[in-house]
Design a protein around this nucleic acid. Sequence first.
DNA 1: TCTCATGTAACTTTACTTGTTTCATGATGA
DNA 2: TCATCATGAAACAAGTAAAGTTACATGAGA
Lengths: 154, 154
Amino acid sequence: MRRDSRLSGVLHVLLHMAEFKQPVTSERLAVMMQTNPVVIRRIMGGLRDLGLVASEKGHGGGWTLCCDFDRVSLHDVYLALGAPELFAMGHRNVAPACLVEQAVNAALATAFEEAESLLMARLGDVTLGQLSADFHARFAKRERCAQEARPDVA
Amino acid sequence: MRRDSRLSGVLHVLLHMAEFKQPVTSERLAVMMQTNPVVIRRIMGGLRDLGLVASEKGHGGGWTLCCDFDRVSLHDVYLALGAPELFAMGHRNVAPACLVEQAVNAALATAFEEAESLLMARLGDVTLGQLSADFHARFAKRERCAQEARPDVA
DNA sequence: TCTCATGTAACTTTACTTGTTTCATGATGA
DNA sequence: TCATCATGAAACAAGTAAAGTTACATGAGA
């Protein structure tokens, strides 16, 4: 199956939005993301419900950030998406009668739960602010490289 | 996506096989697993290639274990399946030109790689022998409960 | 040589994300 | 007021991958 890229996508959207002061339409975001405006609205709905962003209809409308980038972690964004399934692997039966399957499920569940806890903790460690800072660092670096490639301009 | 349950399934098969001395046919395993013989053959193929099990054709044929249950970990079995994708989430673009997306991918990749490492380590900690022992413990416990429910028989 | 069992290929089914179309709703501005 | 712009929501199509199914070839025993 195609892997769920909503978390990746919504973070992409949020960081782009941070570069604008005015509301950004789904249309513009869709162009940046190379996708469809409806897809943008879909992944943004959960964030609106949790108060991370707001949407306005009509002229001059669109999406605006209404959260402190330094207080929102990637984990918060993950939850805003509805905490989608993390793993591509699962049990055959959730509550099997077969004792063999129960033993297998128990062993796998322990390992997967530990991995999930670690992942959630790591996502909680990173804020949108840090992500945005990383982007700006990458942007500055590219600018420098562009300068160095054109010494005559400097 | 329906979640990939091959790891769960193949462990289930292996533990069932451990309860038999003679070769077990795909047909019988399929009945135990409530699935199709071809599905059994499919998920067992990788294990055969790695020498964990052997298959014999013809009369009296079927699948036999040919590995030390105490020396094979769940991680080995996972690898025998071809190390299928672990996570249900992924990046939109693997190598994006957009710097925002690069920053997002880098942050997510770090978190996911750590979780993957932990999961692989945990799977490596558990052997098929331990899993089988857990099954036998569950079996013994159920027998005891059944006894207690029929005190007149005791 | 007949039967049994695996090996393999092709096709169908199922489930889910993504993409797209369509229309309703509401806000802005002339 | 009314046309326009934008979101909201529903419905449907496309693409993908695992799982289920069918069919047949291959090879081992009896």
